[in-house]
Amino acid sequence: MNLLDRVANLGRAAIELVTGFGSAGLMLWGAIARKPRAKGFPLFVKQLYVVGVQSMVLIFVSGLFIGMVLALQGYNILVGFGTEESLGPMVALSLLRELGPVVTALLFAGRAGSALTAEIGLMKSTEQLSSLEMMAIDPLRQIIAPRFWAGVVSLPLLALIFTAVGIYGGHIVGVEWKGIDSGSFWSILQASVEWRQDIVNCLIKSLVFAVVVTWIALYRGYQVIPNPEGISKATTQTVVQSSLAVLALDFLLTALMFGR
């Protein structure tokens, strides 16, 4: 009997998982598979402010520090091989290929994702979503869609800012502090960074992460159990699940892009 119970538990977990994916997919479909309308644009701009602009300081400062730390650690290792000139490509490639998209997505999940979940969860528990429904306004369209698009637009922009700032942070440490020649820093860096391989892939990664993180955050908020405990739980779930999703997808994408 015990064994049968376990099998049943496994089955139930699987069913819940599939149902979750299904309803998350339906939510997203309901939100974005619509004709855009003129009234939606101000809502989108407002969400760009909430999701994008308000994350900018965090992204800027983190990018700067991560670039600087990367350069300092890299310098200490590279100087042992007498190849400290390669600091530029090391910093730039790590940022473009991995740290830029991934760290930005993780920070975004913590800053904007959790805020989205909490906001929508609060709207649900204070019956604002029901209230929209009763006013014959589709909450998916009014609430979910602008936030989704704002997330999808913001995260790649933030990742670009993060990466660019990080490279300049590396430049500050490598050139200004450790005295690598500025000319060779940039020229070796430029010789090894490639538009298609590195920058386009950086953008693709951050776009995928943007969709996933925003989607999870919105879904967690939309499905919240409408009480304070439910909201705090959903917020935690957003951060945990979207971080895991970002890291797992990052491996998958890296294998596809650079695995050959």
Partner: peptide, 20 residues
Amino acid sequence: ELFTLRKRMSMLFQSGALFT
């Protein structure tokens, strides 16, 4: 059709449910 019906009815929620 449901949305058309809902324009004819309205609901006052317990919490007020004003958009914050």
